[in-house]
Amino acid sequence: MNVETKEYYSKEAIQREIKAGNRTGTVEQMDANVEAMARDLQEILRIGAEQKRLWEVYEGR
């Protein structure tokens, strides 16, 4: 995913961009890492929203 435009790219679309010099794992490993990071980010955002909600409830006392 392009973090600026939020555009998603398939493995097939970027396969030709991956070269030995800039490669840090197999395409499958990188895909799994990206998916894990996306899940982690969703959880971070969920926790942040919950913290904000709780703080607003606390301040509303």
Rank of each mutant, 00 (worst) to 15 (best):
residue 19 K to Y: 05
residue 19 K to H: 11
residue 9 Y to L: 09
residue 27 V to C: 10
residue 39 R to L: 14
residue 12 E to I: 00
residue 19 K to S: 05
residue 6 K to I: 03
residue 7 E to D: 14
residue 53 R to S: 07
residue 38 A to N: 14
residue 48 G to Y: 01
residue 16 R to G: 08
residue 32 A to D: 02
residue 57 V to H: 05
residue 36 A to H: 09
residue 3 V to K: 13
residue 23 R to P: 00
residue 4 E to I: 10
residue 33 N to Y: 08
residue 54 L to T: 00
residue 54 L to M: 07
residue 10 S to C: 02
residue 42 Q to P: 01
residue 46 R to S: 10
residue 45 L to D: 03
residue 9 Y to F: 15
residue 37 M to C: 11
residue 23 R to S: 08
residue 37 M to I: 10
residue 30 M to Q: 14
residue 43 E to Y: 03
residue 47 I to Y: 00
residue 58 Y to F: 14
residue 39 R to P: 02
residue 4 E to L: 09
residue 13 A to Y: 11
residue 5 T to Y: 01
residue 23 R to D: 05
residue 21 G to Y: 08
residue 5 T to R: 03
residue 20 A to N: 09
residue 6 K to G: 07
residue 60 G to W: 02
residue 12 E to L: 03
residue 42 Q to A: 13
residue 18 I to K: 02
residue 27 V to T: 15
residue 32 A to I: 04
residue 35 E to A: 15
residue 28 E to F: 04
residue 56 E to K: 02
residue 60 G to E: 10
residue 15 Q to V: 11
residue 56 E to M: 07
residue 16 R to T: 07
residue 33 N to P: 02
residue 11 K to M: 15
residue 4 E to Q: 13
residue 29 Q to V: 05
residue 29 Q to N: 06
residue 49 A to E: 03
residue 5 T to S: 09
residue 40 D to S: 07
residue 17 E to C: 14
residue 61 R to T: 03
residue 17 E to I: 00
residue 56 E to S: 07
residue 10 S to A: 08
residue 41 L to R: 08
residue 2 N to Y: 06
residue 55 W to K: 10
residue 40 D to T: 08
residue 54 L to N: 03
residue 31 D to Y: 11
residue 39 R to C: 08
residue 12 E to G: 02
residue 16 R to W: 13
residue 36 A to I: 01
residue 2 N to G: 04
residue 55 W to C: 06
residue 37 M to H: 09
residue 19 K to N: 03
residue 57 V to L: 12
residue 36 A to Y: 12
residue 3 V to P: 13
residue 38 A to I: 01
residue 61 R to I: 01
residue 47 I to K: 14
residue 52 K to P: 02
residue 3 V to T: 07
residue 17 E to S: 07
residue 49 A to R: 15
residue 28 E to H: 06
residue 16 R to V: 07
residue 23 R to T: 12
residue 20 A to V: 02
residue 19 K to R: 14
residue 8 Y to W: 15
residue 58 Y to P: 00
residue 34 V to Y: 04
residue 11 K to W: 11
residue 57 V to D: 03
residue 40 D to P: 00
residue 24 T to S: 11
residue 20 A to P: 05
residue 28 E to Q: 05
residue 36 A to M: 12
residue 53 R to V: 01
residue 35 E to P: 01
residue 43 E to R: 11
residue 43 E to H: 05
residue 26 T to K: 01
residue 61 R to L: 09
residue 51 Q to E: 15
residue 6 K to T: 08
residue 19 K to G: 00
residue 54 L to D: 09
residue 19 K to C: 02
residue 32 A to Y: 06
residue 55 W to N: 12
residue 42 Q to N: 14
residue 10 S to K: 07
